[in-house]
Design a protein around this nucleic acid. Sequence first.
RNA 1: GGGACGUUCGUCUAGCGGUUUAGGACAUCGCUCUCUCAAGGCGAUAACGCGGGUUCGAAUCCCGCACGUCCCA
Length: 472
Amino acid sequence: FARKHKGAFILRFEDTDTERNRPELIEPILESLRWLGLLWDEWPYFQSHRFALYREWAERLFTEGKAYKCYCTPEELEEKRKRALAAQQKPKYDGRCRSLTAQEEQRFLSEGRRPALRLKIPQSGIIAVEDAIRGRVEFDSSELDDFIILRSDGRPTYNFSVVVDDVTMNITHVIRADEHLNNTPKQILLYRAFNYPVPIFAHVPMVLAKDRSKLSKRHGATAVFEFRDRGILPEALVNYLARLGWSHGDQEIFSTEELIEKFSLEAVHPSAAIFDEEKLWWVNHHYIQTGDPKRLGELLRPFLVKLNMMSEAEAQAVPNEQLADLVTFFKERCRTLVDLAEAARYVLTDNIAYEPAAVKKFLTPEKVELLRALAEALASVTPFAAAELERATRAYLESQGKTLKDVAQSCRVALTGKTAGAGLFETMELIGKTKVIARLQRASTVIGESSGEGVIQRHFTMEHYNTRMHLL
RNA sequence: GGGACGUUCGUCUAGCGGUUUAGGACAUCGCUCUCUCAAGGCGAUAACGCGGGUUCGAAUCCCGCACGUCCCA
């Protein structure tokens, strides 16, 4: 919205709650926003650094007679609240300290009480919020009380500090989750007290978890990192999130540029949305298919390490060309970067994860014999490319009175460890002659080794290949 | 306890009184393709929270109720 209207996107940390305010939480938030490509225009502001300003603005309201000192203790207030609730009354401040005599004030001060500052609000009347999404929402003044703007320890309350900030930062549009709609009348009262025009408010729907409970905002950055680590692309997450509570015809896929161009508050609808991971995977799949293979290849590197396929140094050493080729080869059946990295495992390493069920079903002694013979037939194929391999394989099988169906799955398991994957001959070409021959040859050892119970993965190294090659 | 907001397929949504046998997307399930798995193509299942009104006509307007969420805390 800010980009579309050539405004400034200001990042502000509302960290007046000194107990919950932990400096180590800041960097992850900045990092998550950077990763998403949501780049702010000014250095972030911290409310915790602006207490002097809030105090100054609060004192001004006091001087102008718009706010007053309240000496009531939390215990007294709690007591009143309980009594009100017991009497089925609305628990709001009774205005006790609105008109204190000098004498009473002296007495409180001599007792060592420190005053809080409360805003004097109109006793009656309607406060209307003109919400850009929900239309006019009216609140009766009698529902509100003289709320605290500055606590007795000098800390501002949320409603006060945000309004001071919005005024001093010349904020024109307040777009936020609808949990704040009920705070808005109080804030409007503050704008009026400051003689400052009320900005445009727009309360957007919340995003809820699957069980309709609220997604914790304190875990926002963590959640972003979680998706990043699960191989989600930033543009996919932004695209998916943008379509929650907002739509533009039947369109589902939006580039960031398109979002800037097409977003409008009028098209935001008011009801809450549930976060559906399945659809996020689908959006991500789209961006994996259409993204630049070179870029995706680079993004793959950290996952090669995370998935224990190789060391950091080895991952760095894989040529970008090869990574890009792997992306192109595997992307069709991959929804995430993790899928891509995992798919490429049998190409980049010899550390193959053989699926036990697949070995049991397809690497029977009879099939293994056939594979060994096939390896010999393929050893002379030149070039070692898909079309030639297919021709040679089919010819050989025909000579043996067999069909491709008889051997394809066994062959795939021997080469990749899996029953599912890309075309067999394309896979052979990708793996390369040496490894294909070796893996077909050593299929018998896979049975031998995995016939035992509980064998989930077989790990073998180049030494094994060399030995087998020698025997060959 | 009071107040505010919300309620269309399982999910995201279109719809802003008649063009609606309620449209699209994700998911699900078929079919197709086939060496497997995907992808793609084709198709299917599936929704207006409930009850009153207004109107010739309501998912669309009004009222009540229920449920959910938020605020006062």
